[in-house]
C-alpha cells in the first residue's frame, strides 16, 4: 500500500488530470460568459438562488470557472485552483441532485443553456470530476508555470 501511494506515476496522472479539468472548466465557462442572460435562466430554473442574487451569480460564476480553469492548466496557484474546482463541482452535484429530488423540469445548464436535461448521470459525472480534482490536490507537483516565472511563496516569505 505504501509503495503504491509513493508510486511516481501518480504525479504524471495528476498533471494529465489537472490539464484536463482546467480545459474542461475553461470550455464550460465560455458560453456562459458570452450569454449571461441564458445562463441566468439556467440558474433561475434551479430555484436555489434568491432573485436579487441571480444576476450576480450569472455574471461572476462563469468567470470564476474560467480563471480557476486557466490557473489549473498553467499551474498558477494550482492547489487553490484545484480546491476551487472541487468546491464548484461539489456545489453543482448538490444542486443537480436537489432539482432531481424536487422533480423540477430543468436543463442542466452545464455547458450550454439548451443542453442536456439534468439527470442522475449528470450527478455521477460531476462526482467523477470531483474525484479527479481531489486526486490533483493530492498528487499534483509537475509543470507549474509560476515556478518558472514567479517567485514561490517560500521565496517571498524568506
Amino acid at each position: 500500500m505504501r509503495r503504491w501511494l509513493a508510486w511516481r506515476g501518480h504525479f504524471w496522472i495528476a498533471l494529465l488530470l489537472r490539464v484536463y479539468l482546467g480545459g474542461l472548466f475553461v470550455l464550460a465557462s465560455l458560453y456562459k460568459i458570452q450569454f449571461p442572460a441564458a445562463f441566468a435562466d439556467s440558474v433561475v430554473e434551479y430555484q436555489l438562488v434568491p432573485y436579487a442574487l441571480v444576476p450576480v451569480v450569472a455574471v461572476v460564476l462563469p468567470w470564476l470557472e474560467l480563471l480557476a480553469g486557466l490557473c489549473l492548466v498553467l499551474g498558477v496557484r494550482a492547489k487553490a485552483a484545484a480546491w476551487t474546482v472541487a468546491g464548484l463541482l461539489a456545489m453543482f452535484s448538490v444542486a443537480v441532485a436537489s432539482v432531481l429530488w424536487r422533480g423540477l423540469p430543468v436543463g442542466c445548464g452545464c455547458f450550454e443553456a439548451s443542453g442536456e436535461p439534468a439527470s442522475w448521470l449528470t450527478v455521477a459525472r460531476d462526482l467523477v470530476w470531483l474525484g479527479m480534482a481531489l486526486y490533483v490536490i493530492g498528487y499534483d507537483r509537475f509543470l507549474h508555470l509560476e515556478r518558472v516565472f514567479l517567485l514561490s511563496s517560500a521565496e517571498l516569505d524568506r
Partner: peptide, 23 residues
C-alpha cells in the same frame, strides 16, 4: 505542490467579480 492560501481564494473570487462585472 505549493500550499493553497486564503489569499489565493480571495484573489480568485475578487478577480472573477471584477472581470465579470466589467465584461
Amino acid at each position: 505542490m505549493t500550499r493553497a492560501r486564503v489569499v489565493d481564494f480571495v484573489f480568485l473570487v475578487l478577480l472573477s467579480a471584477a472581470l465579470g462585472f466589467a465584461f
